[in-house]
Nucleic acid binder design. Structure first.
Length: 202
DNA sequence: GGTGTGATCGTA
DNA sequence: ACGATCACACCA
């Protein structure tokens, strides 16, 4: 299906508090032109992670080798390895030097589903291809090699194809945080009633 | 539909 | 020692 997926969101889009950016990323499209075939999916679930004031954020305790990308320019892609087996992907935000980021948690597959299925052999249904942060990263082939790349330019980008974010997104606590580690903040945003949205809030 | 649990290893 | 998770088993 023909789509206008070439114009990446500009750096100024990302150069704001992650809490502002996160809900606006809903219904935007993540695109990869790395391989022979385009892979694209519509973002339907995200979480905002802030800086020194957010105990749930990787940047809470300051800069380390792992989280260095969060301290870099807005519009960067921050990938990290977790649970000894999974990669997850974030869009680095601001404002300015603030080490904020938005975790990309789930998306609706649009293009390149055959490529996604090869990377995610365990996905039984198409709705399982990108339903979860590690699943989404795997479907797009994102890993260590992509940490720090620029989403505002290059083969991997986020674009606005004309679909507005929802007027009223679903909002909940972020998933997977231990009690007292930022789980009290309602910084998960999702498209209501979308079957590709991942697990329930805890 | 739901809940419970093992896998697996870099990071601090 | 633990995680910004997943897949599968099992029960319903």
């Amino acid at each position: 299906m023909a789509r206008r997926l070439n114009r990446a969101l500009p750096r100024r889009f990302y150069d704001r508090d992650a809490i502002e950016v996160a809900p606006e990323l809903l219904n935007k499209v993540l695109v990869s032109d790395e391989g022979d075939e385009r892979v694209a999916a519509r973002i339907v679930e995200v979480e905002a992670y802030r800086g020194l004031d957010d105990p749930g954020s990787h940047s809470y305790r300051g800069r380390t080798p792992r989280n260095a990308t969060m301290f870099g320019p807005p519009g960067g892609l921050y990938t990290y390895f977790t649970y000894g087996m999974h990669w997850c992907a974030n869009a680095v935000c601001g404002p300015g030097e603030q080490p904020h980021a938005v975790l990309l948690r789930a998306a609706v597959p649009l293009d390149g589903l055959d490529v996604m299925r090869v990377r995610r052999v365990k996905a039984r249904r198409d709705r399982d291809l990108c339903a979860g942060p590690a699943r989404l990263a795997q479907a797009f082939g994102l890993d260590r090699a992509h940490d720090g790349i620029d989403l505002t330019r290059g083969p991997i980008r986020i674009v606005d194809d004309g679909m507005a974010p929802p007027d009223v997104p679903g909002v909940s606590a972020r998933i997977g945080l231990a009690p007292g580690k930022g789980d009290e903040f309602p910084w998960r945003y999702y498209v209501l009633s979308d079957p590709n949205v991942s697990g329930r809030p805890r």
